[in-house]
Design a protein around this nucleic acid. Structure first.
Lengths: 218, 218
DNA sequence: CCTTAAGTTGACGACCACCTCAACTTACTT
DNA sequence: AAGTAAGTTGAGGTGGTCGTCAACTTAAGG
């Protein structure tokens, strides 16, 4: 039943995937699809035939890369003896990815409604994050009022700073991140003026970010 | 020599300025100019006649508002007895403006190459900021390695979070800001991994932000 | 009034990105 | 070698924004 794809079709699909990987990485997940088609040496129509639109293309190209990178970061973080060091390492590694790969930056800080696989992977990763945070809390090395739902903030903010400063001061984000991390130690804690977002709110905001630009709410 | 404007022309210019104020405030400084023209009840052509383009319109509409608001924030900040409280208040007030007025958010965190008046006002405000920071430093209430060039970070990051969460959790930015402020007390300080941006770098980055979207560098 | 310069209009061309589809080309089967 | 389904193409429709301009309208002075 799985009638095999024609050879040229498969070849083109692979070229498209490769091109998408490159261009997403360089320009983010909002890169023009026609640019990707051109880079793959096919017409835009073919891209829409093989995949079906941006989200499907993203979901075909990104999940493996994202999973591998994010999992590797988690492994390294969990290998740290000190839970705080583990937490810091994890956050720093994620930000490093954002700084060196715009596709990762978008994949981690936005949600594309129809990129199901990608969303599942990101969701799954949250479990690991909760563990990391729980350990740091248990060890009294992370302020008690910091929750897993606060992490997206860090990624959103780094995403901004990184894009703004990428060409002129590629390491600048580390400085901003350090300021914030310094505020996350228990000793630094002062009362917070607002509750954390709920998991649903985080998800909804990420969907907004993923859905085209402009529209600010409604 | 100052041949007075015809009455209808003046009337339209005023309507345009008013409409621009409203729409910039609701949608940010990137709002479609045709939307503004429509709101003013004139055609797009008239807008281009009276002003000359987006930057000129911005420079006609924003400086007074920005100056008043920003100056008021500085006055309140300087009235605080404790220099740290003054610093925190100033930053918080600026972020509040960003949260309630997208035009302020853009005006404060971006630069529009041809909006001369606006840029001068923002530049001038930096002096006050330096004073605020110097006082906090002198009182030992602000970590010594924080510089005036680090402030734009806070505005960039708040700008992002605010836009993302405005509709669903309008106070969420206060939480994120608190984390960072908690990292700016001297006691929280740990070594920074990167030097601050130079004033020129800050300016250049802001210009990039102001110049259309997309283009990542070069 | 009526002239005329100032002002306004709105259609228009340019650009960019999305997505589609009828016509064409190709790979695979027999 | 030919038939045919699968695949590809690229022009073209859509939608949105920018900026322009020839033709029209209007304010204001004589």
């Amino acid at each position: 039943m799985e009638q095999p794809m024609r050879r040229d079709a498969r070849r083109n699909a692979e070229r498209l995937a490769t091109a998408a990987g490159q261009i997403f990485r360089e320009r983010g997940l909002d890169a023009p699809l026609e640019e990707i088609a051109k880079a793959a040496g096919v017409s835009a129509g073919t891209l829409y035939n093989r995949f079906g639109g941006r989200d499907a293309l993203i979901d075909a190209v990104m999940p493996d890369v994202v999973e591998a990178k994010v999992r590797a970061a988690m492994v390294r973080a969990e290998a740290e003896a000190d839970p705080w060091d583990g937490f810091v390492l994890y956050v720093t590694l994620l930000c490093e990815m954002q700084a060196t790969d715009l596709a990762m930056s978008d994949a981690v800080s936005r949600r594309y409604a129809d990129a199901k696989r990608l969303n599942e992977i990101c969701e799954a990763q949250m479990d690991g994050v909760r563990g990391l945070i729980a350990k740091a809390h248990a060890a009294g090395r992370l302020r008690a009022d910091f929750t897993a739902e606060d992490l997206p903030y860090l990624l959103w903010t780094t995403s901004t700073v990184v894009r703004a400063t990428a060409s002129r001061a590629p390491e600048a984000w580390r400085r901003a991140l350090t300021f914030t991390l310094d505020g996350l130690r228990p000793a630094a804690a002062h009362p917070l003026p607002a509750p954390p977002l709920t998991a649903e709110q985080v998800h909804a905001v990420m969907l907004d970010l993923g859905a085209k630009r402009s529209g600010q709410g409604r």
